[in-house]
């Protein structure tokens, strides 16, 4: 009997994972210019729902630039021009000018923790409050849920009212993740979220990412090949603003089709 239940569960899981491997973000022929300088060339990617997609490549190849097109953070920079098409859930994100709605749906975690000089609670509640949620009970519940979701509730539950800047780097980064989760996004973008962390904190964040993928579509930039191999389902290799190769992570790391990909993942350059 117990066997059967587990089997059913296993079958269910199977179905869920195949059913969910549908497109979340479709990027078609994307080009991006910083003024005269082109930084992205004909990028096309099909990013799957509830998977972790890793973006790898040498410094300056356009990973961050690409990531920031997905929540239109590049709009903040003067002189940026974008051509091509990005749809999320079938909606063209550059068609409407409602970046607010886009950014609540597509959250972002940065390389270095950028918590505000406020309490832990206020940091996590910041986004929801700006959306107009004022009810204390609702906020309390949301803050707890988000901190649990970022696997940091137990560490901070007794000092929610103290400054968030007093936490360790790894804890701060997980609060940043909690802050993003509090917006109930579909997609979470992460730009080298562990590059400023020690190995133990890094491992914690990686574990967290692996857990989070059942609820979110995650796109992560990383310089760390092992990290990409450990946590991602798909990997895109960027070089000079182009996507050289995009495939299942185990393919990229074991039998890449392009010589340049192989050279990069085996550490021969970059």
């Amino acid at each position: 009997m117990v066997m059967m239940v587990t089997e059913v569960a296993a079958v269910n899981k199977q179905q869920v994972s195949t059913a969910s491997a549908q497109s979340k973000i479709l990027v078609d022929d994307l080009n991006l210019f910083y003024g005269e300088k082109q930084a992205l060339f004909n990028v096309s990617l099909d990013i799957k729902e509830k998977e972790v997609t890793a973006l790898i490549g040498p410094s300056g190849c356009g990973k961050s630039t690409f990531l920031r097109t997905l929540n239109r953070m590049n709009d903040l920079i003067d002189g940026v021009r974008v051509s091509g098409n990005i749809t999320i859930d079938g909606e063209d994100i550059y068609a409407s000018n409602d970046v607010i709605k886009l950014r609540t749906k597509v959250g972002m975690v940065f390389q270095k923790s950028n918590l505000f000089p406020m309490s832990i609670y206020d940091n996590v509640a910041y986004g929801p409050r700006m959306q107009g949620i004022k009810n204390r009970k609702v906020l309390d519940a949301l803050v707890e849920e988000s901190l649990r979701g970022a696997a940091i509730w137990d560490e901070v539950k007794d000092r929610l009212k103290t400054s968030a800047l007093g936490l360790s780097g790894g804890q701060q980064q997980r609060i940043c993740i909690a802050r993003t989760i509090a917006m109930k996004p579909d997609v979470i973008l992460m730009d080298e979220p562990t590059s400023a962390l020690d190995p133990i904190s890094t491992l914690k964040v990686e574990e967290l990412i692996t857990q989070m993928k059942k609820d979110y579509t995650i796109v992560i930039v990383t310089h760390n090949m092992q990290q990409a191999a450990r946590i991602s389902d798909k990997t895109a290799f960027f070089l000079n603003g182009e996507v050289v190769e995009y495939d299942d992570t185990n393919v990229i790391f074991s039998t890449p089709k392009d010589q340049r990909t192989e050279d990069y993942v085996t550490g021969r350059f970059g």
Partner: peptide
């Protein structure tokens, strides 16, 4: 980074 962090939260 404060500006970016806040704007990225849909404010």
């Amino acid at each position: 980074s404060y500006r970016e962090g806040s704007l990225a939260l849909g404010t």
